[in-house]
Amino acid sequence: MAIRRQTLVLATLLTPVTLFLGVFFLLPLLIIALFSFLTPGLYGGVEWAFYHWNYGRIFGWADDIIEVYEPIYLQILARSLGFAALTVLLCLLLCYPVAFWVSRLPNRWRMLFLFLITLPFFSSLIVRLYAWLLILKPSGILNTVLIGVGAISEPLEILYTPAAVVLGMVYVMVPFMFLPLYSAVDNLDRALIEASMDLGATRLQTFLKVVLPQTLPGILGGAVIVFIPSVGNFIVPDVLGGAKGLMIGNLVEQQFLSARNWPFGSALSMIVMAVVLAVLLGSTAAAKRKGGQNA
């Protein structure tokens, strides 16, 4: 009797969440999955007929009459994954030492720093990217300062290059990497570092054998949180990259907003989702393997 009552209470409590996820998360996902197998309508939308060439265009079984296979799509995906991975790596290299530094600050300064790092969330991404445009352009702040101090004589050509895209992505994603990383570093028991050195481990050995594994959950968490939106980001490549290097996010956006090919956009989205899911599962497995040792 008691158990049934508990079940009932639990079910009641979980119903709103289930409904919410079902309607706002699962349903759109199912629609995209469905659309990816339908025929594109001439003026957008879909026609309700099965159509596998959305995937055929991407993976190579298109008939070259109705649809044409082009390796370009997988190349764009690979390029986007590469940029996302680079973003993760740079964010990690940037945030890891800073997280240690911040966790050692006096409480007041630490709070200030954490507030500052979340500050970008208070303004729109587009506005912040345009600010970077003003910084990076040839007559921008960066070049003015560098020329002013005599470091360079000609303006640096950063804007509208892949370097600007990476810079922008790292800038956008750094807070997402920093927060989980900081949390892991802050929770790291300093006594473990001392114990390791006390037992004869050098600083490098201590880092590799104790600090890194102990903060791995934070690293993986940050990496996943940065990687996923980086793969699909299309605003940064457009604004700072001059839209010259197509990313998978641009491609999807374009299918919906200029090519009027919803099914193809859906198929591309499904592939991105599959890749992201694979990365997610991979890192969860890695965390579990390490976490098994942690438990």
């Binding site: 370009i72 010259k244 200029s258 090519a259 009027r260 090919n261």
Partner: peptide, 17 residues
């Protein structure tokens, strides 16, 4: 231009990539 839009889309992808 109806269905010919697809030709433009593919050309545009080529140009941007």
């Amino acid at each position: 231009i109806g269905a010919a839009l697809k030709l433009y889309d593919r050309a545009w992808n080529t140009i941007r990539t």
